[in-house]
């Protein structure tokens, strides 16, 4: 399986993402610059964290209009897995691939520490390797992770099982309904504030994030690779 790590000016978790795929997951991966015009050769798209375009105006609002985003939308429409982490999540919200918006953390502080998550839906292509309601530890690092949407949208998210991760301990940022990660209705676009790519080896304090990437690969193999 071949992954693209999209790099915007100001991305800073792209190297972590690349490392997670190449060295821990042991799959193919390439950096793709924000002005790329074609993502056809990739099977999975990864939008890393950071501060694309300096977070000017609103987090993700400028990155959303970069050339490569047309291709990311196409990949999402084609059913390819698209994962946005932290700033990547913010870009997915701004682009409309995921519903809702991000507000400043309730406590106004930038928060950088491991948090406990509950895997609310383990039947997505991103979470099949987890147990139902499994508790995992993954770090967060953000100043704007306070997820918000209107009541109707929240109800839809709940009904369709689109809430994939919730903060299990203390909610670090005040997000609505303790939301840490959501998918689109089809289930192939996941946005999450915590960083699974920073939790792929016990040496880093947790390897709980690795199963997320393994789930993507397994899902892809099951549907694309025919074993004789």
């Amino acid at each position: 399986m071949k992954f693209a790590v999209i790099v915007f000016p100001g991305s800073n978790c792209d190297i972590d993402m690349y490392h997670a795929i190449k060295d821990e997951l042991k799959e193919e991966v390439e950096y793709v610059w924000h002005d790329a015009e074609n993502l056809d050769q990739f099977d999975g798209i990864l939008l890393p964290g950071g501060f694309s375009y300096g977070d000017y105006l609103r987090s993700g609002s400028i990155a959303r209009f970069s050339k490569v985003m047309n291709e990311v939308v196409k990949a999402a429409e084609a059913g390819k897995p698209v994962l946005g982490v932290c700033n990547g999540f913010q870009i997915l919200l701004e682009s409309g691939l995921l519903p809702g918006a991000m507000l400043r953390n309730q406590g106004l502080k930038f928060i950088c520490r491991p948090v406990e998550l509950e895997v609310v839906n383990n039947e997505t292509m991103f979470t099949k390797a987890y147990q139902p309601n499994e508790r995992i530890t993954v770090p967060v690092a953000h100043g704007e992770g306070n997820y918000f949407c209107d009541e109707k949208t929240l109800q839809q998210l709940e009904t369709n099982g689109q809430i994939v991760f919730r903060y299990a301990g203390e909610n670090p940022n005040g997000s609505l309904s303790d939301i840490a990660g959501i998918t689109n209705e089809r289930g192939n676009v996941l946005g999450m504030m915590p960083h699974p790519e920073r939790a792929v080896d016990e040496l880093l304090g947790s390897a709980d994030g690795l199963k997320l990437f393994q789930s993507i690969v397994k899902h892809w193999r099951d549907s694309h690779v025919v074993t004789a």
């Binding site: 507000l103 953390n105 306070n146």
Partner: peptide, 13 residues
């Protein structure tokens, strides 16, 4: 400006 229904943590501070 932030919508009325949205909490403004900066404003509150």
């Amino acid at each position: 400006t932030l919508r009325e229904s949205v909490l403004d943590p900066q404003g509150t501070a």
